[in-house]
Simulated scan of single mutants.
Amino acid sequence: MKKIITIFDTDPGIDDAFALSFLHESEIFDVKMVSSVAGNVKLANTTRNLRGLVKAMDWNIPIHRGLAQPLFGPQILAEEFHGVDGLSGYLFDDNDLADISDKPAIDAMAEVLRNNDQVLIIAVGPLTNIGALILAHPELKEKISEITIMGGVVGTGNTTPVAEFNIYADPEAAKIVFESGIRVNIVGLNVTTKTYYNIDMHEKFKKSDKKINKILADIMDRRIAKTGAEENYTTYMHDTLAVMYHTNPEIFKSQMVHMDVETKGEFTRGMTVADMRAISTACKNVNFVTDIDTEKFEEIFMTTLIG
């Protein structure tokens, strides 16, 4: 089977850590690089966490540091949820960090695109790096097969009443991506809030002998100690779904729609506005993922990560 040439952009982040492990364990990807971006927490911490997670998986993959600030607007972080360090207080020792390249992420992405055709970009943080890539290298857009993001919502947001965090953190970058002409798959809160990491799953992670699973279990122990577990559920596995959309597309439902990003509204900044009208003649620029088989999700998630 020909593997999918992939760039993975992330801001670890609790759920990012699971997504990174799921990406590593999946067999369909030829991952050329991973990159950090500021988002859940500041860039220094997302980068450090990315290096620690890659080292824990004994993964020989180029790591590149991305951008520390949104393209235009003020910085928005999610430190209250993820902790200032990003992983609920779990800290990697200096000796437990993988090497990082001196080449900035945008330059590294451009190099991957120049050397390959039909590259998939999976972005599970704010779209700062991806927006910057498109601005800097519009001539390379045709090399990108599609961009799959964890972000957006049609309905109730998680950062404002109408905005999801990753889009809200850099709506100008998201607007650039949405208007790029590249196929964009939106795996947002409409789907991700249907998937839970629960206590039963957690107990299996705690019993696993794999180093990365022990770390993930430790992170979740800290998360549960801080917030508790309500009705057996602890948190959503948002970012993993952006990866799973490519390993198991059959468990998802989606539809092509026209979607804009609001960048100017006093109360609506970061809102993803979908034109769902049957009579709409607007260009359908995004593939909006609307549903998932939750039982299949849990089965695939656990089989891939635990075995």
Rank of each mutant, 00 (worst) to 15 (best):
S26P: 03
E27D: 11
I28K: 02
D30R: 07
V31E: 12
K32Q: 09
K32I: 08
K32M: 06
K32H: 07
M33N: 02
V34M: 10
S35L: 03
S36V: 02
A38H: 05
L43D: 13
N45Q: 15
N45L: 06
N45C: 05
N49G: 15
N49R: 09
L50C: 04
R51G: 04
G52P: 05
G52N: 11
L53D: 10
K55E: 10
A56N: 13
A56H: 00
A56S: 14
A56I: 15
N60V: 12
N60T: 13
N60H: 09
I61A: 06
P62A: 03
P62C: 01
P62L: 01
H64R: 00
R65W: 02
R65P: 12
G66K: 00
G66V: 00
L67V: 00
A68V: 06
A68F: 04
A68K: 10
L71C: 01
L71Q: 10
F72L: 13
G73A: 06
Q75A: 08
E79L: 07
F81R: 13
H82R: 09
H82I: 14
G83D: 12
V84H: 12
L91P: 06
D94F: 04
A98T: 13
D99H: 08
P104Q: 04
A105E: 06
I106L: 02
D107S: 09
D107L: 04
A108P: 07
V112F: 02
L113F: 09
R114G: 04
R114Y: 07
R114M: 10
N116M: 01
D117Q: 08
D117G: 06
V119A: 11
L120G: 04
I122M: 07
I122V: 13
A123P: 05
V124E: 11
V124T: 14
G125H: 01
N129T: 07
I130C: 09
I130V: 11
G131H: 03
G131K: 05
A132Y: 03
L133P: 07
P138Y: 03
L140Y: 12
E142Y: 14
E142D: 14
E142F: 14
E142N: 13
